[in-house]
């Protein structure tokens, strides 16, 4: 019964959150391939939104549209509107560099730079000029590592190379690195797919904590993970957004037969 109450609390809490990203009729083309077809999604602040679906369904592609990472691919073309706090992120005046400072990203495979742990975390603040001096930078690094639940493990070896950490630690380092630029939205592209179960649990716990400050969007392969960490879930299939709603509703009472098939394991 307690669980049920909790669930309701969460649901109610979600409804109060303000809108962070509004995607409206987004289409993505890779050359001649129509990868994303007319997707509408509203992403709320201080909420974890999960994108699920079989592989190749376009969920990662859509995620990469949200901070314009697709710009780095020559043949990729995006149409439709994506508004961040009411501002169109594909507006010609918008500099993707500035956008990405607000919309951070964590990748599938842990990709720490071949530099020290400290330099990894301070990289973002440095390029964006977030610290006025060394002590402020130190503070940002410490705070980010704490938020990524890594501080206690690495505080004595901040100058050690980031590539020397274990897989789970590396991924948390990458989260700390993304958090350090004080983003408003954090995009995570299958952040646990390369991790073992224990590290996965740690990262999932972390995601739940990050929800207090950020809007988190996570792409995941694992339905269990989506159920565990998210409040909102979007189900993608063949480039279309099939269903979007509260996580509890999607998993317990899917409206679309395709969603149901996926959840029950018939497609995917």
């Amino acid at each position: 019964m307690d669980d049920m109450n909790d669930m309701r609390l969460v649901e109610r809490a979600v409804d109060d959150k303000e809108l962070k990203i509004a995607a409206d009729g987004v289409d993505v083309f890779y050359g001649d391939t129509h990868a994303i077809k007319a997707v509408d999604v509203n992403i709320l602040d201080k909420t974890v939104t999960a994108f699920i679906g079989p592989s190749g369904c376009g969920k990662s592609t859509f995620l990469r549209c949200l901070n314009r990472m697709n710009d780095t691919i020559d043949v990729c073309r995006v149409t439709g509107n994506i508004l961040l706090d009411g501002e169109d992120i594909y507006h010609p005046k918008v500099d993707p560099v500035q956008l990405r400072a607000k919309v951070g990203m964590v990748f599938q495979k842990p990709n720490p730079f071949p530099k020290s742990i400290y330099d990894n975390v301070s990289y973002g603040p440095r390029i964006h000029g977030l610290a006025r001096n060394k002590s402020e930078l130190d503070e940002i690094v410490e705070k980010s590592l704490r938020r990524a639940a890594l501080w206690d493990e690495v505080k004595d070896r901040l100058t050690a190379p980031g590539t020397g950490l274990s897989g789970g630690q590396q991924q948390r380092l990458c989260i700390a690195r993304a958090v350090a630029t004080s983003p408003e939205v954090l995009l995570m592209d299958e952040p646990c797919s390369a991790l073992d179960p224990i590290a996965t649990a740690q990262v999932e716990e972390l995601i739940d904590e990050l929800r207090e400050r950020f809007s988190v969007v996570i792409v995941t392969h694992s339905m269990q993970q989506a159920a565990r960490v998210s409040q909102k879930t979007a189900f993608f299939h063949l480039g279309e957004l099939v269903e979007f709603g509260d996580t509890s509703q999607i998993f317990t009472n899917p409206k679309d037969p395709r969603t149901e098939s996926y959840i029950t394991g018939r497609i995917g």
Partner: peptide
């Protein structure tokens, strides 16, 4: 590594 850097707004 490139993605990581671009993702941070570099």
């Amino acid at each position: 590594l490139r993605d990581g850097s671009y993702g941070l707004g570099a």
